[in-house]
Design a protein around this nucleic acid. Sequence first.
DNA 1: ACTTCTCCCTGTGGGC
DNA 2: TGCCCACAGGGAGAAG
Length: 278
Amino acid sequence: MPELPEVEVVRRGLETHLSGATFEDVSVLHPRANRGQDAPLADLLVGARIDAVRRRGKYLWLDLGDDALYVHLGMSGQMLVGDPGVCTSPHMRIHASLTDSAGQERELAFVDQRTFGRWLYTPQVGGVPVPVAHVAHDPLEEDFDVVSVARLIRRKRSPIKSVLLNQEVVSGIGNIYADEALWQAGIAPTRRASSLLQREVVALLDAAEDVMRRALAEGGTSFDSLYVNVNGESGYFSRSLNAYGREGEPCRRCGTPIVRERFTNRSSHFCPVCQRKR
DNA sequence: ACTTCTCCCTGTGGGC
DNA sequence: TGCCCACAGGGAGAAG
């Protein structure tokens, strides 16, 4: 559920607090949080310096020079920065001690209730960590090419919502912002991508960019304390949602009650009247 | 080659 | 009060 805006909020916080910091100690408290790593994480990280904190779509990484610490928040991952010993969460999966650029000792806790997230120490290839190499550019990147992404989308036979969720086509969009972008563009989630006109897909991608920019300006979306910035604070965008979570409430365009339907094992929220099926 | 489905995981909350 | 189950959902990997 942390999608692009929520991950960007985390990235900014990490950059503010930990740029120039050096890892002093690392403890993996739950092996699933570091799955896929052969060497002990501490052996890889201790002594490494954080040059910058970067992001593509929902993926985050600490730039350590040639290598990176890749971070995926999954559904419930949090990156909490604080004074040493401040995090007491039973869901803390990895704990790191660092010395920041001012020489202060800091703690970085990876807290993840549902354990879908993970850290992975990995080389960088072409400026991104290995697991990010296959990830498409996101709509907030400078060089995001709306026209060519729209062309790619129109070659897909899947429902448009499934295509929006495919991180290899366009990254950063999850279930919430997919529903919001489709509502804003007035397109039904079940429409086959190949049935859409180029200008409809361009409008949809513009809507996705717009809704994610607005969410970012409000600190992201959160329904509970699971989705927070590095200081543990929630964003306010949930009060601005037009479709997601509004089952039975009137569509803000036409007044028709918003419908929630099961769609590829997830919930879709949409207006049955003003989101075009054809 | 492309698309769709299943499973991973844990806490919450509704129904009985 | 307690038990069961649906639900939240990104992505890896299998199945179609």
